[in-house]
């Protein structure tokens, strides 16, 4: 049975080449001396230098990070609440609609979410006079709405694996439902909440379509800035920016992988400890 699946290994090699050649090419060309983004003109780091002195890019990055942190945090709170509610309360009035509302944004095409949010904000301004202007607030609200359901999915999946008895034990020992949640439920599902936050953060930081519909003058996020430049074609400074973003994210994912490996090793050590403690 232990034959080498040569065909599968070849396909894996091709697949990974397909995944990474475009990104590597982009990284290489970010060090291109030439202004023509696709013709090699020698090695240079001048595009990186010009990137950091570009105040527009820096401002957009800061705005994007601000929106991503705020929206991911609120989305995580709301999404966790929804995930716990769906996993723990089997029956309540309007559960069907609620679970529908939690899944619908996952499959709704972004362009529809975008125009519906925009029309909503415009009509709202028409009816109650708020929001007078679209920008930071409206983008954040829209990001919270469509990223919270991703958090819900992650949290709900984790909750359905958790031992219900742990919560009952806390209740049995005198804790009220809200104390149980803070003392037991949240600490136990904390890793899921963290990955939910990271997911929401990434989604917000990456979003173009919904942001482009819900933003207003003066509120250009980094993806929007890239979008407006990319529409005009390939430029070396975008290559440099892309390289930086890919490297940062790549390092983050690798780091997360190392941390996960570490905790797996710790779990194995604990198991050995548990075994030895029997003596």
């Amino acid at each position: 049975m232990k034959r080498r699946p040569m065909f599968l290994i070849t396909m894996l090699a091709f697949g990974f080449a397909f995944f990474y050649i475009p990104i590597l090419s982009m990284i290489v060309y970010s060090f291109n001396e030439s202004r023509l983004a696709t013709v090699w003109g020698g090695f240079s780091t001048k595009w990186y230098a010009s990137l950091f002195s570009n105040r527009q890019v820096v401002a957009a990055l800061i705005l994007s990070l601000k929106i991503a942190v705020i929206s991911a945090t609120i989305a995580t709170i709301l999404g966790t609440m929804a995930g716990i509610a769906l996993a723990r309360f089997r029956k309540f009035r309007g559960r069907t609609l609620f679970s529908g509302l939690v899944t619908a944004p996952l499959i709704m095409p972004e362009v529809i979410t975008g125009i519906s949010s925009l029309m909503f904000f415009i009509m709202l301004a028409e009816w109650i006079g708020w929001p007078a202007q679209r920008g930071f607030t409206t983008v954040t609200l829209a990001h919270i709405t469509f990223s919270m359901v991703f958090v819900t999915t992650v949290v709900q999946a984790r909750m359905s694996q958790a031992d219900r008895a742990i919560e009952e034990a806390a209740m049995d020992l005198g804790s009220r439902p809200w104390q149980v949640m803070f003392d037991v439920t949240l600490p136990v599902i904390f890793p899921a909440i963290m990955s939910g936050w990271l997911l929401a953060f990434t989604i917000s930081l990456d979003d173009v379509v919904i942001t482009s519909f819900t933003t207003g003058p003066g509120s250009t996020t980094l993806p929007l800035l890239i979008w407006s430049k990319v529409k005009l074609g390939v430029t070396p400074d975008i290559n440099a920016l892309a390289t930086l973003m890919v490297v940062v994210v790549g390092l983050g994912v690798v780091l997360a992988g190392i941390i996960m490996n570490r905790s797996a090793a710790r779990a194995r050590a604990d198991e050995r400890m548990a075994y030895r403690s029997n003596e």
């Binding site: 696709t38 930081l205 990456d206 993806p223 890239i226 390939v234 973003m245």
Partner: peptide, 15 residues
């Protein structure tokens, strides 16, 4: 999947 969607599209524009 974690890297920017927009930039992945962009990478192919270059190619």
């Amino acid at each position: 999947f974690w890297t920017s969607f927009l930039l992945r599209v962009y990478a192919w524009m270059g190619l």
